[in-house]
């Protein structure tokens, strides 16, 4: 099991944002979380990644309990994520966004860097090569010297996913990757996630508002509404669930 979450709960003030959330994400699994706006989907991600500390419940990454670890330790333990509102290092180059992500594997210390020792030069060259190879896999190599913030929207999304993968995670959390994309871009994104799922030895958990993405990709889906899981199962079964339809009809736009 890559990620096992039991009874995860968080409330803000009197409002329960997430109530008793459970999840069993297998190795190389691909699951999704859907639900109307404000259902607590992003809060689940924030609880998994330590942005918020859960009130109760447990998160197990493989054998390791990461429930109350600080965010950076959770990331180093092997959970990487992207953000609903893209969070790139906008003024850094595309290449540096990736090379930065390799900081935990730098292989040299402060003194090596200070005096540019042989170790530093060897390891730094390795980091650059790895970063460029990584960018090439995502078709971003010719953009390497551009500022990340100046990329078109779709490429920023792609770079954010590439950056998350550069840390070498066991679990990848994607927070509404298709948000703000047109149908053609969504189609490319589905291809990209499928490719990532095939090429990298990891499990993916996906939050998405656009149902086609979830229908195409996910093996299993949970539906959140007001912090509660109201349905779960295969994507095709879930969308026929009357509770789910009702939750979505409460919104202005019904799912496709």
């Amino acid at each position: 099991m890559a990620l096992r979450i039991t009874e995860l709960t968080k409330s803000f003030g009197g409002l329960t944002a997430v109530a008793k959330f459970n999840l069993a994400l297998g190795e190389r699994d691909l699951q999704g979380i859907i639900g109307p706006n404000g259902a607590g989907k992003t809060t689940v991600f924030n609880l998994i990644t330590g942005v918020y500390t859960p009130d109760s419940g447990q998160v197990l990454l493989g054998e390791q309990d990461t429930t109350r670890l600080p965010s950076d330790a959770i990331a180093r333990a092997g959970i990487a994520r992207t953000f609903q509102n893209i969070r790139l290092f906008a003024q850094m180059s595309v290449l540096d966004n990736i090379t930065m992500a390799l900081h935990a594997h730098a292989g040299y210390g402060l003194l090596d860097a200070t005096f540019r020792t042989a170790t530093f030069r060897r390891e730094e060259a390795r980091l650059l090569t790895e970063s460029r190879d990584h960018l090439a896999r995502f078709g971003l190599l010719d953009r390497q010297h551009e500022q990340a913030g100046s990329l078109p929207y779709g490429e920023q999304r792609r770079l954010e996913i590439a950056r998350a993968l550069a840390t070498g995670p066991k679990v990848l959390l994607l927070d509404e990757p298709a948000a703000g994309m047109n149908p053609r871009e969504v189609e490319e994104l589905i291809q990209l996630i499928r490719q990532v799922h095939q090429d990298f030895p990891l499990a993916i958990l996906l939050i998405e508002h656009q149902l086609p993405v979830v229908m195409e990709l996910c093996r299993e889906v949970q539906v959140l509404d007001f912090g509660q899981t109201i349905a779960s199962g295969g994507p095709r079964d879930v969308v026929r669930n009357p509770l789910v339809i009702e939750a979505y009809l409460g919104e202005e736009e019904a799912p496709a």
Partner: peptide, 21 residues
């Protein structure tokens, strides 16, 4: 070096940097 890139990443987006470990 990697130290400089980490410092810059904190300036650019501290939350993203933290969630990159």
């Amino acid at each position: 070096s990697t130290f400089g890139r980490v410092w810059l990443s904190i300036r650019e987006n501290a939350i993203a940097a933290e969630l990159m470990g």
